[in-house]
């Protein structure tokens, strides 16, 4: 109890001073929340950039895909590059197609199923990449206020203990301890609010992209099945 020192009345009340006066538990909470905030913003920035690029890539791929260019040529240009999004799905499907025909696949039904599987896989992998780390935003958004509250409760407890020790209840003595404790909640909210907003926006963006990619994969699957029928029919 002796080492719990109350802020002198009229002591520095700047944010830095408040942070330095806090007990180590509260400090830890505050530092943790600050790190969470940093990481949240890192994710937000990263995702915003990634989604932007993804949308751009989808637009460009769709433009190229529907330009009437031969699929073989398109595959040849894309196969060597690192592809994302629709490109990756297209490449996965085309690879399966190629493999099947190189080895002289007999049953078109089996080929169709394999191609679908390959495209699903590619789609899932792409979505994973898109939605990765969004969970952290959700967690921060929901848990940060509680963590901050924890810091506040601990801070207020300590300051009450100190008040009891000093036997002085004047507001000037009580206020700094409570202000310092409330700083933890403030930081918690500071981390949580952007996280929640960003999570909602990013997850909706991701789902839009996913819908778009699913649509493409379905369309491409339809095109490929037509191709398979055309290839199988003349032989038959």
């Amino acid at each position: 109890m002796e080492n719990i020192a109350l802020a002198e009345p009229g002591a520095q009340l700047s944010i830095w001073a408040l942070f330095m006066q806090a007990s180590w538990v509260v400090k830890l909470v505050m530092i943790g929340l600050l790190c969470a905030s940093v990481w949240t913003w890192a994710i937000i920035i990263d995702k915003l950039v990634a989604y932007g690029r993804m949308r751009l890539a989808l637009n460009r791929f769709e433009q190229v895909f529907w330009s009437g260019q031969s699929l073989e040529e398109l595959y040849r240009t894309l196969a060597d590059r690192k592809t994302t999004g629709m490109g990756a799905i297209f490449v996965a499907a085309m690879r399966e197609w190629k493999k099947s025909f190189e080895k002289g696949a007999k049953t078109p039904l089996g080929l169709q199923t394999r191609i679908d599987k390959a495209m699903d896989l590619a789609l899932t992998r792409e979505m994973e990449k898109l939605e990765g780390r969004l969970g952290f935003l959700a967690t921060t958004g929901s848990a940060a206020p509680f963590i901050g509250l924890f810091g506040t409760v601990i801070g207020i407890m300590t300051s009450f203990q100190a008040i009891a020790g000093s036997k002085n209840t004047s507001l000037a003595v009580v206020a700094p301890g409570i202000a310092e404790a409330l700083l933890a909640t403030a930081i918690g909210l500071l981390a949580a609010i952007p996280a929640v907003i960003a999570y909602n926006k990013l997850s909706s963006d991701a789902s839009k992209i996913a819908v778009r990619m699913e649509g493409f994969s379905d369309e491409f699957s339809a095109i490929l099945s037509r191709q398979i029928d055309e290839k199988v029919a003349p032989k038959a």
Partner: peptide
């Protein structure tokens, strides 16, 4: 991810530094 992290860190330090200097002790009532 690196770009995101670095920009976030830079942003935070900037905001904190700004806060430390401008949000100093509020004037006494």
């Amino acid at each position: 991810m690196k770009t995101g992290l670095t920009t976030s860190v830079i942003l935070h330090t900037a905001v904190l530094a700004f806060g430390l200097f401008t949000l100093s002790a509020p004037a006494a009532l």
